[in-house]
C-alpha cells in the first residue's frame, strides 16, 4: 500500500459518502444518473469476485464490502425510495448504457491477462469503470446546472482515479514485476474523460460561481 493508493481509495470513499449525503439530506437524486450508478454496482460486483476466495488484507475486504454495499444502496434508493425516485431525471438520463456493457465485455474477452472466468470479469470491470461516468457527464451536460454536492461527487470520483495513476507510476518504479497495463491504460482513459469536467469545475471554483457546463 502506498500513500497515492490510500488517498485514491479515500477520495473514492468520500465520493460515495457525498453522493449518499446528497440523496439522504436532500431526499432528491436530481442531477444523478441512475445508469452510472447501475454501471458502478456492476463494476464492483464483477471486480470483487475474489472477495471470498483470496484474502489480501482486512482493509481490502472491508473496502470491497463497503463499495459493493454502497453502490447497491444508491441504486436501490434511486429505484425504490418513494420520495427520492420522483426526483430522478428519467428523461435526461437516456444514455444507452447497455452498449457500454457490451463493448466492455467484448473487449474483456479479447484483451485480458488470462483467459479465465475471474480474469475476464476483472478486465470487464476495469473497462466498464472507465466508461461508467459517461451517462453522468451527459446528464450534467444536458441539465446544464450542477448543484454543489453533485459537482463534488464527480470531482472526488475523478480525483480517485487520478491518484491511482500516481500509484501505478510509483509502483512501476518501486516494484520489479509490477505490470498492470490494463488498469493503467483504462485508468488513464477514465481520467481524461473527467478532464473536461475538471476544467469547468475549476473555472466555477475560481470565479466562485455556480458550475455551468456548456450545453
Amino acid at each position: 500500500m502506498n500513500i497515492f493508493r490510500f488517498a485514491g481509495d479515500m477520495t473514492h470513499l468520500i465520493s460515495i459518502l457525498v453522493l449518499l449525503l446528497k440523496i439522504y439530506a436532500t431526499k432528491s437524486c436530481s442531477g444523478i444518473s441512475l445508469k452510472t450508478q447501475e454501471l458502478y454496482a456492476l463494476v464492483f460486483l464483477t471486480r470483487y469476485l475474489d472477495l471470498f476466495t483470496d484474502f489480501i488484507s482486512v482493509y481490502n475486504t472491508i473496502m470491497k464490502l463497503v463499495f459493493i454495499a454502497s453502490s447497491l444502496a444508491v441504486v436501490c434508493c434511486m429505484r425504490m425510495h418513494r420520495v427520492v425516485r420522483r426526483s430522478y431525471d428519467k428523461d435526461l438520463d437516456t444514455f444507452r448504457h447497455y452498449f457500454l456493457i457490451l463493448a466492455s465485455f467484448v473487449l474483456a474477452l479479447l484483451v485480458n491477462e488470462k483467459f479465465t472466468f475471474q480474469e475476464i470479469f476483472w478486465a470487464f470491470s476495469i473497462y466498464l469503470e472507465a466508461l461508467a461516468i459517461l451517462p453522468q457527464l451527459v446528464l450534467l451536460q444536458r441539465s446544464g446546472n450542477v448543484d454543489n454536492l453533485t459537482g463534488q461527487y464527480v470531482f472526488f470520483l475523478g480525483a480517485y482515479r487520478a491518484f491511482y495513476i500516481l500509484n501505478w507510476i510509483y509502483r512501476y518504479f518501486t516494484e520489479q514485476h509490477f505490470s498492470r497495463w490494463i488498469a493503467c491504460v483504462s485508468g488513464l482513459v477514465q481520467t481524461v474523460l473527467y478532464a473536461d469536467f475538471f476544467y469547468y469545475y475549476f473555472i466555477s471554483w475560481k470565479n466562485n460561481a455556480k458550475m455551468q457546463l456548456p450545453a
Binding site: D54, I56, N60, M63, K64, K114, F178
Partner: peptide, 10 residues
Amino acid sequence: MEPSDLKDEL
C-alpha cells in the same frame, strides 16, 4: 496464485 495474480488494488 502468484503474487502478481492477486489483485491487491480496489
